[in-house]
Structures are given as C-alpha cells and as structure tokens.
Design a protein around this nucleic acid. Structure first.
Lengths: 226, 226
DNA sequence: ATTTTTTAAATTGGATCCAATATTGAATAG
DNA sequence: CTATTCAATATTGGATCCAATTTAAAAAAT
C-alpha cells in the first residue's frame, strides 16, 4: 500500500535536510510531482505542511523556496529550546519525579558514566550517547512538560541542527567530542541533582545553559550556512 | 473573485473560536464544504492548516475533531508565552533599545497613564488599552525577538485566550478591570525601566510574570472549558 | 434471540481537469 | 536602439471525478 502523501513529505524533508534541495532553490508543484512520480495533490499538501514547519518559505504568489538556515537561526532556535526545556525542568523539579522517571534518569547517568569512564570515545559510543541523551530529555519533558511546551518544542525542532536529536558529532575528532560530550553529561548530572533536590530555578538555569551543548563547535555547523 | 482558501480558513477559525463549532465535534470535509459553499479542496487545506495550528486534532483515519481547550491548556500556553516573551525582553535589555522603539514604548506608557489617571475605566478605554498593549508587546519583540521566538509565539498564540490579543476584558465589571489592567500597566512601567537600565534578568522576570496578567479572572475563561 | 457475515454508505486521499493570474518574452512604435 | 505593450506560457488554486478503506447496518445462520 503506497501512501504518496506521507512519502512525499518524508522525501522532501530528507532532501531539504541533506541539502539535495539547496537553500533558496525554488520548489514548484509540477516538477516536484514529476520527480517523485505522484500527482500534484500530495505535493501541494506536503508543501503547505513544510511551510508550516518552517522548512519552506512562500515567495509571493509563485511557489516556495527552501528556507535559508543561517548559523544565527540555529543559535536562536537552540536558545528557544533552552528556555522551553528550562521551563520543563523547573516544573519537573517543583512537581517532583515519579519513580519511573527517576530510574530512567539515573539509568542515563549510569550509561554515560560507563562511556566516559574509559577516558576516551569510540565511534560506537557516539550512537550510545545520542540515544541516552534523547532519553534524558524525553524523561524531563515527560514530567515537566505540558502540551504547550511540547508543541513549541516540536515545532522548534523542525529546524535542522536545532533539535536534541541533532548532536552533529564529528567522528573524525573523537578526542574533541570526548570533552564536549563529557561536559554535557556532567550537566546531566547537575540537572538530575537539582531535580531530586526540588531546586526549580537551579534546574531551569542548568537546562537552559545545557542547550548550548548542542552548539559547541560551530565549524561543524558551517555547512548549514545559507 | 473570492479567495475560498483564505475564507474557509478564517471562517473555521472564527467558528472554532466563537464556540459555534463545539469542542469535540467532528469536522468532516463534505459537510463543511457544503456549509461554506466551496469545494472540498480548500476545506481539506484548511483542515490540515488548523491541525498544524493545534485547533483541530486528527482522530484516527476518520477526519478531525475540534480540540477541547481546557483552562489548564490556556494556563500552560500563557506560561510558555511568558518564557518566550521573557527571553525577548532579556535580549532587548542586553541589546539596548533603538530610538524608535524607546519612543514607542514611552508612548504606550503615556497613553496608559492617561487612561488610568482618571481613576476609573470607560468602555472605550478597554479598546484603547488593548491597542497599546499589543503595541507594547510588539515593540519588545521587535528589538528582542528573533525568528525562532516569533515562530514559537505565533504558534502558541493560535490557542484561543492565550494570545496577547485576547485580554478578554469583562465589560460588565469595569471596576474590577480597572485594578487588573492598571496592575498590568504598572508592570509595563517596570519592564521599560528594566529595559532602559539594561537589566536583562530583571526584564525577563518581569515579562515572564506579566504574562499572567492575561489570566487574572479565571471565571471569565470558564466558557473555554472543554 | 444473538452473533457473524456480507453489503452498502460514508469519508478521506489522489488524480485530472479547469480557471485565474503573473511573469517573461517578443514585437512594434517612438 | 530602447521602451512599452500585448500575448503566450508557466504556475498556482479550485472543482470534480475516482479509488480505497472503514464503519455501520441489515440479513442470515446458529
């Protein structure tokens, strides 16, 4: 069972994310539909969705262009993620952790400690850290989040490189990544400590600062320059 | 030449906001298109857009229902607006005000002072205050905002009652509104003071708290109960 | 009488066709 | 040779038609 609508959406998202559709290039209905072998309808739907997500910008009355994402845009989006996750952390601290979430967070800390105790990073560690990092942020959001926070974060994360899931680790510089990710992991420790002690403003400040861990090496991000 | 697409969108938004389309009720393509006298296409587009905006929720594979907005949802959205506008205020304070924005903010303060100096409110004052309130928040966002903040705010404000534009003043209780809006206006004074003194964290805290001024009388909001 | 199966109706997603509009290019006039 | 106007083409938005799927209702069997 083919679902052209869904397929067009993921195909275009992937093309934009990978740069196959360059920033600033025009995206018209007819060429896109021919390229993907579907009719104009699913393409039209996908374009409206991608515009809502902020990946495309409507240019006058004549179709869309791929949004140029500047380094500044990414920094701004990370800053916004910081205040939103900071709010979630504050709420989580004030509300207190349930047993499941506390266990999930402790598990993230133990996993990370095992990775960094070696004193160096292997390539496989990057994927493991990325996984535990996502679990960590999801756990905080599960307790401290609400629908408004989740909506705002989901929308904000549509921007490439701004999401928690986009650590953009540099596999060729594992020594440098060790220091960066170990620092981020120590922040995780501090955040859990604040959450367990019900220190709301401390948890918020830590989480807000922690967002910047995504951006440590801006040269990695230069390929996002539009 | 009517623009069905735009008209369907505003019509449905208005119907949802006014409660004409009750929370939880199903919104199908064919009945809606017949009701509005257009084809199914603009309706289909509008429904996807309204889903993205969070006013409709997709129910399985069978169409949409109007989102039930609880008082809790509104409180949460206002809290999110608080941190986002707080971030904008902090950035504005750190960056400093340009002359135009400083004049615009001072103008809002003068206008408000003129309204509240009387010691009571007339019905016409409500519209005047609403106008200056919007101008105030737009001015702060003009200096301290960025694309990520603006996007997140625009999306957050789609929820009825959560926006700056939804003060929901109670015209039948002008005495009570006097106290509430005067309080909000005094907060405006404090925020401008913080901005002029370049006190970023103070500006942020004030703006974040100021968001709650939208919610002073929860009984007004009870009709939003889903 | 109840349950299961089959059929019909409703509804969404996709494709094609049609209309309106803007942009570009060509032709003509100054 | 340049500028202006007119026409043609490209492109989006809307309408109608078609297919697939799900739900509900009705009929039949146990």
């Amino acid at each position: 069972m083919n679902k052209p609508g869904k397929q067009v959406l993921v195909a275009l998202r992937q093309m934009i994310g990978s740069g196959e559709l360059a920033a600033g290039s025009r995206v018209a209905e007819i060429p896109t539909s021919e390229m993907l072998g579907v009719s104009r309808m699913p393409v039209r739907m996908a374009l409206r969705t991608l515009e809502q997500e902020g990946l495309l910008v409507k240019v006058g009355v004549r179709g869309y262009t791929v949004r140029s994402v500047t380094l500044e845009n990414i920094i701004e989006a990370v800053e916004v993620r910081g205040v939103l996750e900071g709010l979630a952390a504050q709420r989580a601290a004030e509300r207190g952790l349930d047993a499941d979430t506390e266990n999930a967070l402790r598990d993230c800390l133990v996993n990370g400690d095992a990775i960094f105790a070696k004193g160096f990073l292997l390539e496989a560690d990057l994927a493991a850290y990325e996984d535990l990092n996502i679990r960590f942020h999801e756990a905080v959001l599960r307790v401290g989040g609400n629908s408004a926070i989740r909506d705002a974060l989901a929308r904000n994360d549509h921007l490439p490189f701004a999401s928690v899931k986009a650590l953009a680790a540099d596999k060729s510089r594992l020594d440098r990544e060790y220091r960066r990710l170990n620092f981020a992991h120590m922040q995780h420790h501090a955040i859990v400590d604040a959450l367990l002690r019900r220190q709301g403003v401390r948890a918020e400040a830590l989480m807000r600062e922690h967002a910047n861990a995504t951006l440590a090496y801006t040269d990695i991000l230069q390929n996002a320059q539009g």
